[in-house]
Simulated assay, not measured.
Amino acid sequence: MIKLIHIEPRTDATVRLSFSDATTARWSAADYITRDTVMTRPLADPAFFARAFIESGALAWPNGFELSADALHRRLDAAGELVRTAA
């Protein structure tokens, strides 16, 4: 099971993600922000977005919005955006 091991939220609504399989990627929350739902609306606020944290290996925010590491990893891999680090 893939887990997040490190995150770096950025001011442009992106997060630098490091996964347990030694891959990294930059993920954008833009698609979620444009949905403008009760759970995603707070992500548009840079101060709130910066409060992202890892909970049980998933990307999470204080309002309870979470994205599983597996789902993020699969999407980023399918888009060719994962960077694999040599062992």
Score class of each variant (00 low, 15 high):
Thr37Cys: 06
Ile5Lys: 10
Ala22Cys: 09
Trp61Cys: 00
Phe49Asp: 04
Ala69Phe: 08
Val83Glu: 13
Lys3Glu: 15
His6Cys: 04
Asn63Val: 00
Ala29Gln: 06
Asp77Ala: 13
Gly80Pro: 09
Leu59Glu: 01
Glu81Ser: 09
Gly80Asp: 09
Ala47His: 14
Ala52Phe: 02
Met39Arg: 10
Leu17Tyr: 09
Tyr32Asp: 03
Asp21Val: 00
Arg26His: 05
Ala79Ser: 13
Thr23Trp: 01
Phe19Met: 01
Phe48Met: 02
Ala22Glu: 03
Arg75Glu: 14
Phe48His: 08
Arg74Met: 11
Val38Phe: 06
Lys3His: 14
Pro46Asn: 07
Arg41Trp: 01
Arg51Ser: 12
Glu81Asn: 12
Asp77Trp: 02
Thr85Arg: 12
Arg84Leu: 05
Ile2Phe: 05
Arg26Phe: 06
Ala22Pro: 00
Leu82Cys: 08
Asp31His: 11
Ala13Thr: 03
Arg26Gly: 00
Thr14Asn: 06
Glu81Trp: 04
Ala78Thr: 15
Arg10His: 10
Trp61Gly: 01
Tyr32Leu: 15
Ala52Met: 02
Ile33Asn: 01
Ser56Ala: 14
Pro62Phe: 02
Asp77Pro: 00
Ala47Trp: 12
Leu72Cys: 10
Asn63Arg: 12
Lys3Leu: 06
Thr34Arg: 10
Ser56Gln: 09
Asp31Met: 13
Glu8Thr: 11
Ala44Arg: 12
Ser20Asp: 07
Ile2Glu: 05
Ala58Gln: 14
Asn63Thr: 02
Glu55Thr: 00
Leu17Pro: 01
Leu4His: 08
Thr85Leu: 15
Pro62Gly: 12
Leu72Val: 09
Arg51Met: 04
Trp27Ile: 08
Ala44Cys: 08
Glu55Met: 01
His73Trp: 15
Arg10Lys: 12
Trp27Val: 07
Thr40Ala: 09
Tyr32Ser: 04
Ala50Thr: 04
Thr34Cys: 04
Pro9Met: 09
Arg35Met: 15
Pro9Trp: 07
Trp61Gln: 05
Ile2Ser: 01
Ala50Ile: 01
Thr14Ala: 06
Thr40Cys: 11
Asp70Gly: 07
Tyr32Arg: 08
Ala50Glu: 14
Arg51Ile: 00
Leu59Asp: 00
Thr40Ser: 14
Asp70Cys: 07
Thr34Ile: 15
Ala30Ile: 12
Trp61Pro: 02
Arg35Asp: 11
Asp45Met: 03
Ala30Trp: 09
Ala79Glu: 15
Ile54Arg: 13
Ile33Lys: 01
His73Asn: 08
Phe49Gln: 02
Phe19Asp: 02
Arg35Lys: 10
Phe48Ala: 03
Leu43Cys: 10
Phe65Glu: 04
Pro62His: 13
Thr37Ile: 10
Thr24Asp: 04
Ala50Gly: 05
